[in-house]
């Protein structure tokens, strides 16, 4: 009995990914001792920061039985419109930047929700459509040029750190204050998904929509909340990216969806809905970021890295789906 539970934990997806991460770190560390140290953690955190925000939003959508491929477009339109508006009206407030970007995101999410939940268009098609619609609007009405003038107060956020570290060679590594955003988000998501009826409802509709309806869940309400939250977080993620890069680009995040979805799936979320965890998502993003950013330390040539990243995604997703099949085939109790 107890043995069974220990075994369950040891063979859980989270555990497997965690082991792969540790193994990879050890290998990189042996090949290149430069890897070991606080600076790696700081660099990695910075590299993962925005992906983490997108990933938690996408995971919630997928758990609910949907998918949202429009978040890069939502993020781009939110961040670009906000920066443009603020520059034009000489507004300079961090709070305003996030509020407006998130607000635009919510409106885009609302559009997704209406298409998916009310008009009942398959989520992939609906969000794909919204994605190209938004991208078109951004380019046609807002502009195509990158803006490097970010309002001062907003821009200064990129120079605020919660932790700095100087190595022997005197190189300074600093952890941006923006890392607090994903930290707070992940804690919040964990609590909401596990300990509220809204969270359980998201899992329930992802597991069996019909059963959820019969049980008395308000499916439409839950779907609206899910897609609007995803839109909001896309807006927040977009603004965070702008501050981090100190530049607002109308296309800067396009194409991010593949990597984010891959990270989520590697983290154990089932693309068919109903299964997924916050910790798994964190680990999935970590693994991909680790591979993307540190292969160079193993002496892998640059053009080869894309291949390796792709390879890991394929292997990771294959392992996950084999696991699902293995669980299905296990004798029932």
């Amino acid at each position: 009995m107890n043995n069974d539970k220990v075994k369950q934990i040891l063979t859980s997806n989270e555990m497997i990914v965690a082991c792969i991460i540790i193994g990879l770190c050890i290998i990189i560390g042996i090949v290149n001792p430069m890897f070991v140290g606080q600076h790696t953690a700081i660099n990695l955190s910075r590299a993962m920061l925005v992906t983490l925000i997108f990933a938690i939003a996408e995971m919630i959508v997928i758990v609910s039985g949907g998918i949202d491929v429009s978040f890069p477009a939502v993020a781009c339109i939110s961040l670009y419109a906000t920066i443009k508006f603020m520059n034009a009206n000489s507004i300079d407030s961090v709070l305003f930047a996030f509020a407006m970007s998130g607000g635009i995101g919510i409106v885009c999410g609302l559009l997704n929700a209406i298409l998916v939940s009310k008009i009942k268009i398959p989520p992939l098609i609906a969000t794909l459509g919204v994605s190209s619609l938004l991208n078109g609007i951004t380019l046609a009405y807002l502009g195509a040029a990158n803006i490097s003038k970010i309002p001062d107060n907003v821009d200064s956020l990129s120079q605020q750190f919660i932790y700095t570290y100087t190595n022997e060679a005197g190189i300074k590594y600093a952890l941006t204050v923006l890392i607090l955003i994903p930290i707070v988000l992940y804690i919040l998501a964990y609590v909401v998904l596990k300990y509220t009826m809204l969270g359980r409802g998201i899992y329930a509709i992802g597991g069996d929509k019909n059963a959820a309806r019969i049980a008395g869940f308000n499916i439409i309400k839950i779907q609206f909340i899910v897609y609007m939250t995803a839109g909001f977080l896309a807006g927040i993620g977009g603004m965070t990216y702008t501050i981090l890069m100190r530049q607002a680009g109308p296309q800067s995040l396009m194409g991010a969806e593949m990597m984010v979805i891959a990270a989520i799936v590697i983290g154990g979320t089932r693309i068919t809905g109903g299964h997924g965890s916050v910790i798994g998502t964190l680990l999935g993003v970590t693994l991909i970021a680790l591979v993307q950013n540190n292969l160079i330390m193993l002496g892998v040539p640059t053009h080869f890295q894309t291949f390796i990243v792709g390879f890991i995604i394929v292997v990771g997703t294959v392992i996950t789906s084999i696991r699902v099949r293995y669980i299905d085939a296990k004798p029932k109790v």
Binding site: R200, Y203, G206, D208, A211, A215, G274, H275
Partner: peptide, 15 residues
């Protein structure tokens, strides 16, 4: 009409 992805306890107590 039960939820395959939730635990036995949750399924029973959900309603």
């Amino acid at each position: 009409a039960i939820f395959p992805n939730l635990t036995v306890a949750e399924n029973i107590a959900m309603n």
